[in-house]
Design a protein around this nucleic acid. Structure first.
Lengths: 151, 151
DNA sequence: TTTGAAACTGGATGGAT
DNA sequence: ATCCATCCAGTTTCAAA
């Protein structure tokens, strides 16, 4: 993980389908050199994969919410994960500090759909109660990017 | 946006660097046919771009938090956005329902870094106060995917 | 209108240096 | 890491369904 790797990842974050030659122009490297570094970053797991960025509204995802779960006693993160990862509507889930135990981000077609998902989450055996916050508008949404050098 | 487009997007969500021929095998279409559809999806803005999925820890992002902002009187979403989008540490920001006005997701190198970012956010002129929730562990993190057919 | 086949252009990839 | 040669993917054109 040197400055060149970071520079390559920065280019790929903006356009993951850029050719190795195009990436090479940005970082002053030949195409084969870029390829070798990308292959190595994949092997090491730094790169988890490549994906497409979609317009959620165009896809039919019109409603988004943060659903906070308060869990019974000491529910293990593994239990929480396996419960929550079966929902296709769950975009992200994290255990967090504070009174909430699990923060779940849900994407649904509409309010009716969201309501059903929240009801199903609330019915999970380890869930004591839920608190939902609906997203009004997504102001910023950025892809993964390597951190800037100390500042 | 028909079933073929959706199928193509599903394949690209899993591997955005798949060749058009490979995508075509999954959806029973020739490479040129796939390319034409992908081009059209980009033109229409359904596809916003292609990006890389990174291991945040490997990148030096060790700390993540939800920072809720309570704003003065009626601050416009445009004001919130332009303030918040200048922070490289801000991964996402959304206006939300409830007592919180703006939900900001922040990624920082460490607690010290996170603290400074929260201080800067709190010092924004329109911010009355903040409430932060630190992520303990990210259980699920999924890329954008087209919704499943009604269920 | 959208597809598949063919042809051409240019990128991916492995080996030599 | 670059250069080069080979192979294969991207891209355009065209004819057909």
């Amino acid at each position: 993980m040197d400055a060149l790797d970071t520079a390559i990842l920065r280019v790929l974050a903006l356009d993951a389908r850029a050719t190795f030659a195009q990436v090479g122009e940005h970082v002053s490297l030949s195409a084969p050199a870029v390829k070798r570094r990308v292959d190595r970053l994949r092997e090491r797991g730094v790169i988890r994969g490549f994906t497409v960025r979609l317009d959620p509204a165009a896809m039919g995802w019109q409603t988004e919410a943060f659903v906070e779960l308060f869990c019974q006693g000491s529910t293990s993160p593994a239990t929480m994960r396996s419960a929550v990862e079966h929902y296709p509507e769950v975009v992200a889930a994290s255990t967090v500090t504070g009174d909430v135990d699990l923060m779940v981000q849900v994407r649904a077609r509409d309010m009716r759909h969201l309501e059903r998902v929240v009801e199903r989450l609330a019915a999970e055996p380890f869930v004591a109660r839920t608190r939902s916050t609906v997203v009004l508008s997504a102001l910023v949404r950025r892809p993964d990017v390597p951190p800037a050098p100390e500042g």
